[in-house]
Design a protein around this nucleic acid. Structure first.
Lengths: 140, 140
DNA sequence: CGGAATCCGCCTGGATACTG
DNA sequence: CAGTATCCAGGCGGATTCCG
């Protein structure tokens, strides 16, 4: 990655894709969507397998998120009319393409989460981010 | 992007970075964080400029999100002890590195949001994602 | 097994008013 | 200008119950 934005001239902000950021965040920013997609990246899985792979998820949220993902074409749902009902969910190409972008996010997190934790711990000591900044005028 | 995961052997799921996904999503998945970071990518900005750049944000959310970002070391806060108070916010290197990953997300959104909208519209007609699937046994 | 429907707590975040 | 503090609504999501 690291070379994604310098097309089209100077390094000015990109005001018009704020909407895109919000759009994608509204879609994947919820509590379970990315976990499900990441789980499904292993291949086709049935409902109960997805549920077992994501400890703590409720049936309500699993079903709801699955439906949203299906509706948006990120996963496919295949119901088998068998005596023990079976339903399999699988990532579409679109869903897999999303995985790439999210993988970048996860790798960023893996790389920097220690750094963030340190910063946060340091801030707790110095009081940064919680009122009363030193107020030393740096450029007077 | 599109070439991020095939290192380290076969295409098996990566179960242990579920935590990382959640961690990064908890941090940037909220309503305003990414918008602020994206706004600050243009350079140093003062409080009111950030607010003006993000229509709809309340002072409460702006201040709160700014503090969180500062606490995590993603942005720096510089207060000038002038008569008209001035405070400037700027992305740190860490914050800028996050921009890369998020840019990938935004580009994904820009590329596929039309596709998603189509899928969603089609689903509304076929009833997919909202009860009563055809239940045609594909492999039974 | 794979859901659907209902109830409800909690937390995010908007509106407003006040301060330094 | 740059916040802080309080109040409050909406919805996200957990727990439970019932259905095909």
């Amino acid at each position: 990655m690291a070379s994604a934005r310098q097309i089209s001239g100077p390094c000015q902000a990109w005001p018009e894709d704020s909407a895109f950021i919000r759009e994608v965040l509204d879609r994947i920013g919820d509590k379970w969507t990315m976990l499900i997609i990441s789980t499904l990246s292993a291949g086709s899985l049935r409902y109960s397998d997805v549920q077992a792979s994501i400890p703590g998820i409720s049936q309500r949220m699993l079903t709801q998120t699955l439906k949203h993902l299906e509706r948006d074409g990120l996963i496919t749902r295949t119901a088998y009319a068998e005596v023990p009902p079976r339903v399999e969910y699988e990532l579409t190409d679109l869903g897999r393409s999303l995985m790439d972008a999210v993988t970048a996010m996860a790798e960023w997190a893996a790389t920097h989460h220690g750094e963030i934790a340190s910063n946060r711990a340091a801030s707790a000591l110095t009081g940064v981010g919680r009122g009363k900044a030193p107020v030393s005028a740096p450029a007077g």
